[in-house]
C-alpha cells in the first residue's frame, strides 16, 4: 500500500513538473493574448472592427489581410501610425492611422501577438526582444 502511494505521489510530482515546464511559454503566450485583446478593443477595434474585418473602403481589414506578411511594418505602424495610400488584399485605402505613442514596447508585443495568433495563423508569441529593436529602427527622426 505504502509503495503504491509512493509511486502515485512521485508520479504526481513528475507530472506537475513536466506540465509547468512545458507551459511556461504557453502561459506567457496566453497572457500576451489576453492583454492583446484588451489593447485591441481599446486602440484598434473602433476602426478595424471587433472581428478585424475593417470598415467598407474606409479602414482595411486585419483578418485575412495580406498586409500581415509585413510584420516589421505592422509593429511600427501600431506605435507610429501611418499616412498615405496602402494596398490591402488588392484594395487601396487612404486614411490617416493615428499614432499611439503611449503604447509601451511590451504593449506593442502583446498586440502583435494577439493579432498574429488570431488572424495570422501564428501559434507563438512575438516577444519583447523582437519588437524592441524594430521599434527603435522605425522611430521617427527628430
Amino acid at each position: 500500500m505504502r509503495k503504491l502511494l509512493c509511486a502515485f505521489v512521485s508520479a504526481l510530482f513528475l507530472t506537475m513538473g513536466f506540465v509547468s515546464c512545458q507551459s511556461d511559454e504557453e502561459i506567457k503566450r496566453q497572457k500576451y493574448i489576453t492583454e492583446g485583446i484588451l489593447l485591441y478593443q481599446n486602440y484598434c477595434a473602433n476602426c478595424h472592427q471587433p472581428k478585424g474585418q475593417g470598415l467598407a473602403a474606409l479602414y482595411p481589414p486585419i483578418a485575412n489581410s495580406d498586409y500581415l506578411q509585413h510584420k516589421d511594418s505592422v509593429i511600427c505602424l501600431i506605435r507610429y501610425g501611418m499616412q498615405g495610400p496602402v494596398v490591402v488584399n488588392g484594395k487601396t485605402y487612404n486614411r490617416v492611422m493615428p499614432a499611439q505613442p503611449q503604447l509601451s514596447d511590451l504593449e506593442v508585443a502583446e498586440l502583435v501577438t494577439y493579432i498574429y495568433n488570431e488572424w495570422g495563423k501564428e501559434t507563438q508569441l512575438t516577444s519583447l526582444n523582437t519588437v524592441k529593436p524594430q521599434l527603435e529602427n522605425c522611430r521617427p527622426k527628430q
Binding site: N46, C47, Q49, L55, A56, L58, Y59, V96, P98
Partner: peptide, 15 residues
C-alpha cells in the same frame, strides 16, 4: 472624419 474613437462605431451603426 479623422475621429479615431467613437465616430467609426457610430458610422457602422448609422449605416
Amino acid at each position: 472624419t479623422s475621429c479615431p474613437t467613437i465616430c467609426p462605431k457610430m458610422k457602422v451603426q448609422l449605416k
